[in-house]
């Protein structure tokens, strides 16, 4: 089967799927303050002119506050792009995107920078400064707030919650991969952001530390009522999700809770394309 045929088949299939599932499982809530993220009619394109390519198609999505939402989908389906749009790292031109109650479409660059300060970002790579200790890396985030007289204390508390109390003065080069990612999580969470965006945070970790990291994120989120949107390919960590959404070829396909998701997907082959062939 040729590549293009498989793609068009998966596309048509995904459309029918989203019609099927979308209406039955979309939660509705009339209070707009109940949502951390509200997206309506979002389209996104890369490139210009002849090279212009649409990567996100008519996305509607509401994320309830306090929920952990996992986003899955084949590689190249637009997950990272959607995450960067919600995180105010890219400018949205079509549709509406409300983050933490604020419409960010049409904001200036400086205003977008301010929106970002309320969001915790966790990347696939830890992106820690090698020259700074674990505590200093976390303090860099605290310094974004106006009051940071007790920044070291805050950093140490956060690192301790992630099990790194005895590593606060270590530089990244002296830490394991899992420990480094936990420092990065501490940095993302220390300012208690209402929204946490994570893009494959466990991809660079082994099974055990990946599991640990996600469990810690889950605990912290539940304690503090944070909203988490996490992209992952890792089936073993799906159980932390309150809700699972799937993006295929730029379209939001499935909107499920875990039980439905497991029932409708073969857990061994979540990739829709592999499923097809």
């Amino acid at each position: 089967m040729s590549q293009s045929m498989s793609q068009s088949m998966s596309q048509s299939m995904s459309q029918s799927m989203s019609q099927l599932v979308g209406s039955t499982t979309l939660e509705t809530n009339s209070d707009p303050n109940a949502y951390a993220v509200q997206i309506r009619g979002l389209n996104y394109y890369f490139g210009q002119g002849d090279l212009r390519k649409q990567v996100l198609f008519d996305i509607d999505l509401d994320l309830l506050k306090g929920q952990i939402v996992i986003m899955t989908g084949p590689s190249g389906s637009g997950k990272t792009t959607l995450l960067t749009l919600i995180g105010a790292l890219r400018t949205v031109r079509e549709g509406s995107l409300k983050v933490l109650g604020q419409e960010i479409v049409g904001l200036s660059r400086a205003e977008l920078v301010n929106v970002r300060r309320n969001i915790g970002f966790i990347f696939q790579a830890h992106n820690l400064f090698d020259s700074l200790t674990a505590a200093q890396n976390v303090e860099m985030a605290v310094e974004l707030l106006d009051e940071w007289g007790d920044k070291r204390q805050k950093a140490i508390e956060m690192l301790s919650q992630l099990g790194l109390a005895d590593r606060v003065d270590y530089k990244p080069s002296a830490l394991s991969g899992g420990q480094k990612q936990r420092v990065a999580i501490a940095r993302a969470l220390v300012n208690q952001p209402a929204l946490i965006l994570a893009d494959e945070p466990t991809a660079a970790l082994d099974k055990k530390s990946g599991r640990e990291v996600v469990t810690l994120m889950q605990q912290l989120a539940k304690q503090e009522g944070r909203t988490i949107l996490m992209v992952t390919h890792d089936n073993r960590i799906l159980d932390v999700a309150d809700r699972i959404i799937t993006l295929v070829d730029g379209r939001l396909e499935t909107d499920d809770n875990l039980e439905n998701f497991v029932n409708t997907h073969d857990p061994k082959s979540l990739d829709r394309r592999m499923f097809m062939m």
Binding site: G87, R116, R117, F121, F123, N127, F129, M140, L144, R187
Partner: peptide
């Protein structure tokens, strides 16, 4: 060499 780290600072809200 610290491109990704500096970009992360920007994502966090540094100008």
């Amino acid at each position: 060499e610290h491109w990704a780290e500096y970009a992360t600072l920007k994502a966090m809200g540094y100008s």
